[in-house]
Design a binder for these strands. Structure first.
Lengths: 240, 240, 240, 240
DNA sequence: GATGAATGAGAATTCATTCAT
DNA sequence: AATGAATGAATTCTCATTCAT
């Protein structure tokens, strides 16, 4: 059996959330008695919070069950809203999924652009990116997002397209630029590498997949693996 | 009368198949009047064929839709059998999926073991494997199978486990052995590579994923990519 | 689009009910313009009504077809709700059945406890009970319930257990107490009867079964039969 | 969960039966080398055996699961024949059930007619019958048959009719005759009893039901109960 | 805007019945 | 005659979506 159900609770999730929220707002108003009472969240703000809660919950559920096996009921429960509320924010399950993934991908790109190329070597630059990626993606929920895209991509071409356009092609262009810089500076010997920037990121992708599927069988030191990979590209490190 | 069944109205797909099959066999008997009548398939053989048809159809559907979104109805239709027939061969959808994947994985391993290490260099050896893998897996349905495992693995731990045990760990051991041979023979400089045989296969995995998701946006020459990767590991090729 | 739902074509039974209900309530609001508008049923009330409709329909169906042959579809149709609605109230067919029977048994016990032992003879007391039972159970749907329990008991041990605990053992204890009272007062001669209170109720049970199975072949005057039975126990009546 | 499945066995039931039967017959032919070889069962005989096996198996299954919940597959398995074989003997499940019950009812009547009224008292006569009934019916599978009829009767009016005609009305006539004899001989005081012969058998029926449903909660000494009942009718026994 | 009860199309699974061997 | 694989209608249960409150 794959699917599991939780038992009904006497108080519904939205009811619990409402109670908490009511208390919270009431509390705030009472406690903050200074000259600048925190503006109590207006309707639009609360709608935005709610929307965010739905997005977070949905992401969690989609990641752990995949698109088809995720139930809107569970998303609603997790987000602390009623099922109907989801439909105030999204047309249907499918567009919610697409929009979600799309929304989530953007920060992924952001993470990857990181700090501007400081004055170090190209290797340092690439290593910086990679460490960032491993810290921010491979070992977090965002890594599962990547796996989710791999999993559902063929059934959601628009997502695969978007991912290609926004992440893959941009990312590869960036990699290519760095490779070319490395070649120009003489740090990278192999000129063909610029034709296959995928090679540069391959171990990072492998690490993402490994985390989801095999981490429990054998842990993988993604950082050390990546450094070894860089050694192949840039030549052996001076023994650190 | 307690329950009533209605008679079938038109001719169902299986019915059509049966008719065709009957005709075919009748035809054979008539046509083949020589001394060696083709042995007409007996019941067991046809059951086996049928089972195979179900397996093929199911694999096709699971690959293109994923586990949850695949309908047994569609599998049955594609296999040309009635829905109930599936249950003569598999306990339920879930065990069908697991058994299927498991069965399909085995030849995957077979493919990878290929010819014994002939008298060439280690690089030739690895390259031979890789070309084989790219030809047999990356560019075929088997590649989609790998992607399917990545997609469904987290929800089917038994499959992920099996895949780890039968493919990943064996494959990596093989890779490690080859790397160590390369190190011993002086073909590979970087001794750390033996700790991360994943690096060796990473581009091949990337190629598998690329095929499913991005081939239509930008074709990827997996073979040339892999050769470039090998250049990083073994040192630049003499310009072929 | 991954899965598509088609729009409903005609007007379903529940739809018809809703329309009627809407009209009815609209009507009320219009018609009742006096100072005391009938409180229009709120959501909770209507849910309760609906639940009751399901219970009634299910009881009817289970009684006339038995557990296994009853279709939830028919229950839904009879209750005027959609199939899914049943699952808002009951976990599955089996627990619906068990819960139903259990719920229905309780009033059965209630009926049987009837008026407190007024100042008459023990025979009057027993006769009072019996008349009550015959009027309230033997000649009503509740009798069929008893037969249903007899029919399905072996396959629903929990029901048989519950019935034994709540009805049979309590009922027999009550009977035994009355028999002992009768013995003490000298109304009943046979002291062994207290060991077999079943004998006291046996004709009533027979009457229940007779109604379901043979009433159409030969009507049975349950009351007169029971009086005759009491004559055996208490001695002949003065010719009434 | 109500239904249970058994695991498939490597050798099918019919296959096992066939092997056994083959061995048996082969054995017989070899061992018995005397002048009068046992006539090996001919086709008709074996068909009859087979039919009987089906009947026995079906009865067992119907009794323990009821009509609707019984699977022909299970009957076939239990009988050691193929499913299709059942259809060589019975039109369909429903007529099999009806025919079965009908067939099984006849010996029930037979049992009840027992030995001719020997020279004892009417009470002895009745007691003889009752003991016979309790021994032959209440405490055996035949008792479950009676419960099965009670359970399925309403859905199989033809069975209820048949049962009424062949068992109930005959049985009650017999009882009435005995009661009248008892009245004529002065053994029975209550003249009304002849109008309700059901009273005479009521405790026996109760015992049947008790066995199926409540025996595990509280055993019931059917014989002693019946004797107590007879005491009510015929007057107290001399302390045996 | 929110809610969540209600809906009903859809999907998995079962099983009486058929029929080629 | 006997078999048992194959069938597909029927049935239970699920869940995305709607809509009255």
């Amino acid at each position: 059996m794959i699917k599991q159900r939780s038992k009904p609770q006497s108080q519904s999730a939205p009811a619990r959330r409402r109670a908490a929220s009511r208390a919270a707002r009431a509390g705030e108003t009472k406690v903050v008695s200074g000259p600048l009472p925190l503006p109590k969240p207006n309707r639009a703000e609360r709608a935005a919070e709610r929307r965010q809660a739905i997005i977070d919950a949905a992401m969690e559920e989609f990641i752990s069950r995949g698109f088809a096996a995720t139930r809107l009921d569970d998303i609603a429960k997790r987000a602390g809203v009623a099922k109907g509320t989801i439909y105030l924010h999204f047309k249907d399950k499918e567009s919610m999924f697409e929009e979600l993934i799309r929304t989530a991908i953007v920060p992924l790109v952001g993470r990857m652009q990181g700090p501007p190329p400081a004055g170090g070597t190209v290797r340092d630059l690439v290593e910086g990116f990679a460490l960032n990626f491993i810290r921010e993606v491979v070992t977090t929920r965002r890594g599962d997002l990547v796996r989710l895209i791999v999993a559902e991509g063929p059934r959601f071409p628009s997502i695969a397209d978007f991912y290609y356009r926004e992440v893959v092609s941009k990312g590869l262009s960036g990699m290519r630029a760095m490779i070319e810089l490395g070649i120009a500076r003489g740090e990278i010997k192999n000129r063909n590498l610029a034709k296959f920037p995928q090679i540069l990121v391959a171990p990072a992708m492998i690490a993402v997949i490994w985390q989801s599927l095999f981490a429990k069988h054998a842990p993988l030191d993604a950082i050390e693996m990546f450094r070894t990979h860089l050694d192949l590209i840039f030549g052996e490190r001076r023994t650190a």
